[in-house]
């Protein structure tokens, strides 16, 4: 399944400072759907190059990270259980505090 992943607010620093990643992620063997839970564990093992604790906590994202699926807060579409579709755009943003 082709997806576009975007990392912002400093999260890009965890994956070689690359903001936008065009990736191909397949559902786990024996399953026909790809959930956000599956995507997170895929990202953790394939994209995050350093300090994984800056991205994940438990099986979800760490506090202070917003997740958008097609420009919508993932809390509005099922969070970890949200099912992804071909060409979906998933954005991970760390909240900023500076001024």
């Amino acid at each position: 399944m082709r997806l576009t992943l975007e990392f912002g607010g400093g999260l890009d620093l965890l994956c070689n400072s690359v903001k936008i990643h065009h990736v191909d992620v397949d559902p786990k063997t024996g399953e026909d759907k790809l959930s956000m839970r599956d995507l997170l564990s895929w990202i953790k093992s394939n994209l995050i190059k350093e300090r994984p604790e800056m991205f994940v906590k438990g099986d979800s994202v760490r506090p202070g990270v917003l997740v958008l699926i097609n420009d919508c807060d993932w809390e509005l579409c099922g969070s970890l259980d949200a099912v992804l579709e071909e060409k979906d755009m998933v954005v991970f943003i760390s909240t900023l505090h500076g001024g």
Binding site: G10, M54, P63, G64, T95, G98
Partner: peptide, 20 residues
């Protein structure tokens, strides 16, 4: 509502460290 739990300290970058 958005951030019920604060992020870890290490995730809080500051202008005086990271620039702006």
């Amino acid at each position: 509502c958005l951030f019920p739990t604060p992020p870890p300290t290490a995730a809080c970058q500051r202008c005086s460290d990271s620039g702006v």
